[in-house]
Nucleic acid binder design. Structure first.
Lengths: 220, 220
DNA sequence: AAAGGATCGTGACGAGCCGTCAACTTTCGG
DNA sequence: CCGAAAGTTGACGGCTCGTCACGATCCTTT
C-alpha cells in the first residue's frame, strides 16, 4: 500500500513548461493588469468584475477561475505592490544610523516608488473605502507595515527622542500620502524635491523648510 | 394683461409653517441622516440608493423627489458638513498673528470637529474614491478649502517664512487626516493631545515633540 | 498514438438592482 | 367643502450581477 503512496506523493516536477500552465499564468497576469487599470480609473467601489473582464479578451466566467471575487483580485494587486516596496523600506531604515537617514530614506524610497508607477498609489488612494472596514489598513498595503516597529526600535536605540511612535507614524504616513497624491496628480514630479521638503519639515519644522525666493525680494 | 402678472409675481409668503413643507423638510432630513449612516458603513461605491431608502420608512421612488442621484445626496452631506467647519477654520486663522496660532488653531478646530462626530470624517475618508475623479478634492470637502489662500496671505504678511504653500498645505492636511483617522478608530480620543502633537511637530520638527517617559529610564 | 480524464473557457441564466411613472392619498386655497 | 396641486407608493422594463452546465483543449497513460 505504501508503494502507491510513494508513487504519488513525490510529484515528478511542477512542470512549469506545460502549455496549460503557461496560458494560465498569462491569463492571470492579463486579468491583474486589467484590474489595476480599471481600479485606478473607476475606483474600487464603482468597479465591477464585468468592467475588469471587459478590458480583457476573456469571457465573463473566466474571471472566477482565477479569483473568487473583486476583493480578492484587489488584494492580490496590493499584495504584489507591497511585496515590492516593503523590503526596500525596511532595508533602508535598518541601515539608517541617524534620524535624518531614517526619515529621508523612508520618504525617498516611497516617493521613488510612487513616481515609478502612479497607478499603484492611485489604486490605493482611490480605494480607502472598503479597505478601512473589512481589510488591512492602508499602511499595510502601502508597505508602511513595519514603520511602527522600526520606529520603536530606533527610539529604543536612542536614535529618536522618546516620542509617541504611533503619532509619529501617523504624521509620516500622512505627509507621505498627501505629497504622493500631488505626484499622482502631476503637480509634483520630482521625488527628490518631495523627499527634501518632507524630511526638512519633520526634522526641523516649518522654519527649517527650504525657502522659496519671493518674487518681490529677488536679488537683481 | 399686466394685472395678471402683478398678481402672480409677488408671492404672498414662503409659508414655512405649512404641514406640507414641514414633512417635506423632515423627510429630507430623514434621508440625509440615513444616507450618512449607510455611507459611513458601506462606503460610497458599495452603497446603493436602495440601501439608503431601506434605512428609512419611505418608498423607493420618494428618494428621487428629494435628490436626483446617490452622488447628489452625498454632495449634500459633504456640503452641509463643510458649511459647518469652513467658517470656523477660516476665522481661526484670520485672527492668528503668529505661526503657532495659525497652525494650532487650524488643527484644534479640525480635531474638535472630528471628535464631535466621527461619522462625518469617516464618510469623507471612506469615499476618497469617486471623489478624486469626478467631484471636489477632499480638502474642499473637509473644509480645508481656504487653507492654501490663508497660507499664501500669511506668507505675504511675513508671518510664515517664504516656503512653498502647496507643499505646506499638503503636509498639514496629511497630518490632520491621519491623526483624525486615529481618532475615528478610537485609538486617540483627545483633540487637545492631537493638536499639541501636530503643532509641535510642524513648528519644531521631531526634536521639539513632547517626549514620552520611557519605562526603563523613569525616575524613581 | 490514441483515447480517457482532467482542466479550463464560454455564454446563457435567474436574481436583484436601477430609475421611472401612473395611480392613489394628502394637503392647500378659495 | 370641493377642486387642484403636491407627494407618496409599489410595480415595471431594462440592465448588470455572479454562477454553472456544457463543450473545447490539453495532459497522461497504456
Amino acid at each position: 500500500m505504501d508503494i502507491e503512496l510513494i508513487k504519488s506523493a513525490p510529484r515528478p516536477a511542477p512542470k512549469p513548461t506545460g502549455k496549460r500552465e503557461l496560458t494560465k499564468a498569462q491569463n492571470r497576469l492579463t486579468i491583474l493588469e486589467a484590474a489595476r487599470q480599471v481600479f485606478a480609473e473607476l475606483g474600487y467601489g464603482a468597479t465591477t468584475v464585468r468592467d475588469i473582464i471587459r478590458a480583457t479578451p476573456l469571457a465573463s466566467g473566466t474571471f472566477y477561475n482565477y479569483f473568487q471575487s473583486k476583493e480578492e483580485v484587489f488584494q492580490a494587486i496590493q499584495d504584489e505592490s507591497a511585496l515590492r516596496i516593503r523590503p526596500r523600506l525596511h532595508e533602508e531604515r535598518a541601515k539608517a544610523s541617524t534620524v535624518e537617514e531614517f526619515i529621508s530614506g523612508t520618504f525617498r524610497t516611497f516617493f521613488e516608488f510612487v513616481a515609478g508607477d502612479h497607478s499603484n498609489f492611485r489604486t490605493l488612494r482611490m480605494n480607502t473605502d472598503t479597505l478601512r472596514v473589512r481589510m488591512d489598513t492602508p499602511e499595510t498595503i502601502a508597505g508602511f507595515e513595519e514603520l511602527r516597529e522600526d520606529l520603536v526600535g530606533a527610539i529604543a536605540k536612542g536614535m529618536f527622542p522618546p516620542v509617541d511612535a504611533d503619532f509619529l507614524m501617523a504624521a509620516i504616513v500622512g505627509v507621505a500620502f498627501e505629497l504622493a497624491e500631488r505626484m499622482a496628480r502631476r503637480e509634483l514630479r520630482d521625488p527628490a524635491t518631495a523627499t527634501a521638503f518632507a524630511t526638512a519639515l519633520l526634522l526641523g519644522g516649518i522654519h527649517a523648510l527650504p525657502t522659496v525666493t519671493p518674487p518681490d525680494i529677488a536679488a537683481p
